[in-house]
Computed example of a mutant assay.
Amino acid sequence: MEFRTIVNIPHPAFKIEPCERILFVGSCFADNIGKRFQEEQFRAMVNPFGVMYNPVSVLHTVKKMENCNFDTAMFTLGTNHVYVERATGEIVDNCKKRPHRLFEERELTIEECSDALCEAITLLQQANPKIRIILTVSPIRYAKYGYHGSQLSKAVLLLAADKLMKEQGETVYYFPAYEIVNDELRDYRFYKADMLHPNEQAVEYIWERLVDTCFSAEAKSFLEEWRPVKEALGHRPFNPESEAYRNFLQKTKETVIKLKLKYPNLKLNL
């Protein structure tokens, strides 16, 4: 008997390679996944101007960046709700604790979401025409909209992502993080205490599905080789001055040197 509904994830036309340059922009879920990539020695940049929840704010981040030369970019979309500054008519990324009366809340349409993401992709392609784009919708629900309102917001983002995929072809790939949490992990034990945010176990499971689906064989091999080094570097000795610990460090350094020879893009320094 099956007690879960497993999400079938199609493989992208591309594969993520070891230590490649990846940009993460989006909701706090982008922070969680992006930091995991950094821990695994990818050259990842994560929300350089802070968390961005809607597609227009994602575009604002890309516009503000001086260096947009990445191999892959992941946009994690949280909501289609935006705040417009009444005085300028511009969508703001952060109200910066200014009075609520200065802003008007509205919802982006499917076309507005898609157009903003399309413009962001175009800007990234100017730096690297071969860049690949991964779109995902954050599984975090927004209780302040009401749960029906939150679902409507996610629906707009899902339709915008689908529209963009059809227009952009194999350059854009949709990874179903939202569906994994809501269909595979349909249990509150996979949530934090607020019952809204996925917990570490859920994020780890999504990471595993992402690796299985999107990583090349070489990238998967690197993760296996990197794991013992990562564990060694996280080790806290009882006596850091001991001969045994010095030998331990020396062996770790030798392993890192071998990894650098095999994976030239590995930038770790000891």
Rank of each mutant, 00 (worst) to 15 (best):
E104K: 11
K15E: 13
E224R: 14
P10I: 10
A116C: 12
T213W: 01
E40K: 12
Q38W: 03
L152T: 02
E170Q: 10
E224Y: 08
A44S: 12
N47P: 09
K260A: 07
T79S: 06
R186N: 12
A127Q: 10
A244H: 07
A244Q: 14
I134R: 05
F175A: 14
H100A: 07
K130V: 03
N128S: 06
G50P: 09
I131N: 01
N239Q: 15
L259C: 08
G34D: 14
A219T: 05
Y147F: 15
Q168L: 11
L77D: 04
A30V: 09
L152Q: 01
V156N: 04
P264F: 11
G149T: 08
P99E: 15
Q125L: 02
R36K: 11
F3D: 14
C28K: 06
F175H: 09
L23I: 03
N182H: 14
I121L: 09
N94Q: 00
E254Q: 15
Y83I: 04
V137Y: 02
G89R: 07
M1I: 10
V172G: 01
A193V: 12
D115L: 08
E243G: 07
A193P: 00
K253N: 07
C95S: 00
V181H: 10
I257H: 09
V56P: 00
Y188Q: 07
E40N: 14
R86P: 00
N8Q: 12
Q41C: 10
L266H: 03
A217V: 02
E200V: 02
Y205D: 09
N80R: 06
I110S: 10
W226H: 14
A177C: 07
F14E: 08
Q168Y: 11
F248G: 02
E170R: 08
Q151I: 11
F248I: 06
G146T: 10
N8S: 12
K15C: 04
